[in-house]
Structure formats: C-alpha cells, structure tokens
Design a protein around this nucleic acid. Structure first.
Lengths: 213, 213
DNA sequence: GTGGGCCTCTACCTTTCGATAGAGGGAAGG
DNA sequence: CCTTCCCTCTATCGAAAGGTAGAGGCCCAC
C-alpha cells in the first residue's frame, strides 16, 4: 500500500473540527486520496481553494460566516472548473437546489456510507455528477413549488426573526398594507395558513436559517 | 504501538453513518481505545449498550426513533454506572440540561478537537465529569429561566406544529380560553410577545424539535 | 387543613393577522 | 408597443391572537 502517484487532491471544509478530523482520518487511509487542506469557515474555504486548487472540495453548508452556497458561487466565479461536493446534514429542497444551481457537482447527506462517498468523489473527479435518488426526490419537490421573490424572502426572514407586520413595515420603509400583501403571497406560495407555519416550513425547506443565540 | 491490555471500550451511537465511521477511524488509531460497537438509532444504542457494557457510550442526541435523552434515561435505569458522553451539534440549554439531568457524564459539541474528546473520554472513564465552559454557560441560561409545565409543553409543541388555538383546544378537549391561558403563560416564561417568536425560541433552546418532512 | 402549584374555565377588550379586491408605477422582454 | 411581473399602496372585513382579571377544583406538601 504505497503512495499513489496521482492521488485525488481534496480540501475539506466543515465548521466542526471533529467532523473534519474524522473525514481526514477516513480518507487519508486511502492511497488514492490526499487531503491537502482543511477549512472551518466559508472564507477559509475560498482561500484554501484558491491556494491549493484541489481536485475536489468537500463542502459543508453550515458556516459561521458565509453560507455554503455563497462559497460555491464565489469559487465557481474564479474557477469555472471547480469540482465541489456538498456534504451536509441539511436536506431542504431549497438548499439542494441552490447548491446545484450554484455549480456543485454532487450533494451528499452525511448519513451515506464511506463507500458511497468515495464513489462520489471518484465520479466527480472524472467529471461526472452525483445526486442520490433521495436528494433528487427532494429537489423535485422544490421544482414543483412556486418561487418566492426577493422582497418576499426579505419579509419571510423578518417573520422568522419574530417581527410583526408593523415592525417589518418600518424595517423596509413601506406601509403595513404592503407587508400584508407580501405575507399573503408568501403564505400562498408556501401553501400554509399562517405565519407560524410559514416559519417552520421555511426552516424545513431551507429557505431561511435561524440566527444563533 | 502494540495493542493495549486494557483499552477503553467504547460504543458509538450517531444516526449519521459517515460521522460514525469518522469517529471510529480516529479513535481506532489510539491503542488505548477500542470501538466495540456502533448504533444508528436510539433503540440500537440501548441494545448495544446492554450487550457490550462498554466503558463509555458516545451518544448523539438526534435519532430517527427515540431522542437521545430518552436513551440516556433508559440505559441509566438499567445500568446506574453507565458512563455516557453526549457528543452532538445541539447547543440548546434545554438539551444540555436534560442530558445531564438524565445522567450523562459529559456534554461535548462536535466542534471540539480530537484531543479534547480523548481527554474527555479519559476523564469520564476515571469517573469524572466533563462540561466545557461554553456548555456550562448555556446551562446557566436555562437555570435562570422559568420552567414550563407539562401542559404548557404540550401546547407549545402544537404551536410549533402550526396549529391554531382553536385546533389545540379540540386536540386536548379543552376550551379555547384555556389554551389562551396556557399560551399566555408560555409567552411570559419564554420572554416573547407572540407565538411566532415562541416557535423560534423553543427551537433554539431545544425545548421542542421539528418533525421532519 | 392550609397554602401553593397546576389545570381548567369565563368574560371582556384591543390588537394583530389574514383574506379579498383592487389599482398604479416601473422594469424587463417579446 | 404591449405584456408580464414585481413592488407598492388603499380599503374593508372577519377571524385569530394576545392582554387582563378573575375563579373553582385538584393534588401534593408542609
């Protein structure tokens, strides 16, 4: 089991130290893989990618600073050939859609087996994509449901932040009536009946994220 | 680096395959540790504990079936000496409190270093406990805030499920007025002004969990 | 048994929310 | 140019939510 001449060069980006070390520990056993760097934030992920130009970037979506999708966009902007595998626990249709839309080549959930991960890495390295059936099914859900406009997303985020219609109105310098219009459209598009349900479905689908603390 | 005569025998319980394998891969390198089993559900965790009686159980809180706290209670009921380390991403004060209350000896977040994990395992194996400062701080928050009654928790769960006061009333066969009373108490105790904020606060603090799908 | 939670109920009132229906302006695209 | 979409606003209305202030029954602990 000697060193491989052309191992697949990989950067791991995950905000959890232990998870990164775990991945590293598993993948380093394989002679065909080489971990060239780690990143614990979105910013670091971009930096490490630029610096090392790995064959594969294993990317989580959760970071303290930039969200994973932004990382994908930023990297793909500079390096169109970038081969990015999203490896995360989030299974919301919106997160999947956004990631693939931004240019990720694969979307894996962290409950896959090591074998599946390795297979995926090899496929992507060869220029293929990799979207497991369950993920694809989630993606289909999203395609079936109407898209929110930018403004509606703004309002939705404030709703999740726990603000009232009146407060949202002052936040955006618009009338409460307008906010209500947006809210109505949001409820329609999400297929729910009140803002409380809007919050939970938005969180489940990955349309918004809760701020910590 | 030969085999240790008395390695610390460990069971790993985590719903994510890749994470389990990562932990195993890391810990197996240490001669002083031995992974004797894995579990991917709460039920399995209890079974594997009973069967192997490990020195240490590394336990996540998220499982498809039983929640981690229940697992702790079930195991501690049979095996009072059980030494359980909670290793999770959840940092809500309620989850921490419940876990330690149920008898966990340590509570670690998955962003700790491997060194910290190993140190924790050794400490717990020697009969000590291990609660990092940040976790302890979260715990303090919980102690400072009033506790919800069983009924209030029932109502809160329904609120998170997106049900209206009227619906909750029929769910529990009580009047809508009574539900409103409970809701008022909930809002007071959580320190929020409406049910939407109650939902996010409850989720952040780990008082309730969202049902998937 | 007395006090204190807890759960239950009632009543009243204000505010907020959500539904509905419309309308005007601006930007993008055919 | 015309259509379409988005954002904005107005107006009205009923339904739901939230605040306040009680009160009775139950069980447990002191």
């Amino acid at each position: 089991m000697g060193a491989n001449k052309n191992p697949i060069r990989i950067v791991i980006a995950d905000d959890q130290h232990l998870v990164r070390q775990g991945f590293r520990s598993m993948l380093e056993r394989l002679p065909s893989m080489e971990i060239v760097a780690e990143a614990s934030t979105g910013k670091e992920a971009i930096e490490q990618y630029s610096q090392h130009r790995p064959d594969i970037l294993l990317l989580d979506l959760r970071f303290p600073d930039v969200c994973g999708v932004e990382v994908i966009r930023a990297i793909r902007e500079q390096f169109l050939i970038a081969r990015i595998i999203v490896l995360t626990t989030y299974d919301g249709d919106e997160e999947i859609y956004q990631s693939l839309q931004a240019g990720a080549k694969a979307y894996l959930l962290k409950d896959v087996t090591l074998e599946a991960l390795v297979e995926c890495i090899e496929k992507v390295h060869q220029g293929q994509t990799c979207v497991p059936p369950l993920v694809a099914a989630k993606l289909a859900e999203r395609t079936a449901s109407p898209e929110l406009t930018e403004r509606e997303l703004d309002v939705l985020r404030r709703i999740v932040a726990g603000r009232s219609n009146k407060e949202i109105a002052t936040d955006f310098n618009i009338t409460e009536g307008t906010v209500k219009t947006h809210v109505n459209h949001i409820l329609e598009k999400l297929g729910v009946h009140d803002r409380t349900q809007a919050v939970t479905t938005a969180l489940k689908r990955g349309l918004v994220r809760m701020d910590n603390a």
